[in-house]
């Protein structure tokens, strides 16, 4: 027997509303393709491109707890929609970096301060994170950014201005920078 979409959704919403989930995740359509967005009670903990929900659920369960369920994430969905429509420049979402190593967290917190529509370089971000010679390590942190888009690793480019790399693929980095007007 299949559970009707309505009953299924009611259960998922009730589970989230009752505060019983370690992680809620949802699929959000975007100009960059479907995004899997996941949040713990502390905030958004994961955004992934080209998601494979089953594998993601396993990874989330290992990292944050077994009570992982697909459930509506209205706040993150709304802010992402507004961002992609060009109506939002800063995210007000809380982000959960509790499972991220301290150096990475420091760098990601600096990254969050890079303004919309601008770019910075790996070297400058390393300096701001008080590790001026760690440009390469900063590159690794960007590559493993658990919450791309909201933490704007797409705004970090090479010292010559070349886009260099992006966890979601260079095409997407370019699209995001064009959306923000940082690329002609």
């Amino acid at each position: 027997m299949t559970v009707s979409a309505d009953l299924d959704l009611r259960f998922r919403a009730a589970a989230a509303a009752a505060g019983l989930l370690d992680v809620a995740y949802d699929l959000v359509d975007s100009p960059l393709g479907p995004l899997l967005v996941a949040a713990t009670p502390r905030g958004v903990c994961r955004i992934s491109f080209d998601p494979e929900p089953e594998e993601e659920a396993e990874t989330l369960a290992r990292r944050f707890g077994l009570r992982v369920l697909r459930a509506p994430l209205d706040g993150p969905r709304r802010e992402l929609d507004e961002y992609f429509e060009g109506r939002r420049e800063t995210f007000e979402l809380d982000v959960d970096l509790s499972t991220v190593a301290p150096f990475n967290r420091r760098v990601l917190e600096e990254l969050a301060r890079v303004p919309y529509g601008t770019t910075t370089t790996y070297g400058l971000l390393a300096e701001r994170s008080e590790r001026p010679r760690a440009a390469r390590a900063v590159g690794m942190v960007m590559n493993r950014n658990p919450v791309p888009i909201v933490l704007p690793c797409h705004r970090v480019v090479g010292s010559t201005g070349k886009l260099v790399g992006y966890g979601g693929g260079l095409d997407r980095k370019e699209m995001l920078l064009r959306l923000e007007g940082a690329l002609a």
């Binding site: 027997m1 299949t2 559970v3 009953l7 299924d8 259960f11 989930l21 089953e54 659920a57 396993e58 989330l60 369960a61 077994l66 009570r67 992982v68 369920l69 697909r70």
Partner: peptide
């Protein structure tokens, strides 16, 4: 133990 999502997805139909 699987993530709750998998537990729910695999059993929700027959439990209903």
């Amino acid at each position: 133990i699987p993530p709750f999502e998998r537990f729910y997805e695999s059993l929700s139909g027959e439990i209903l």
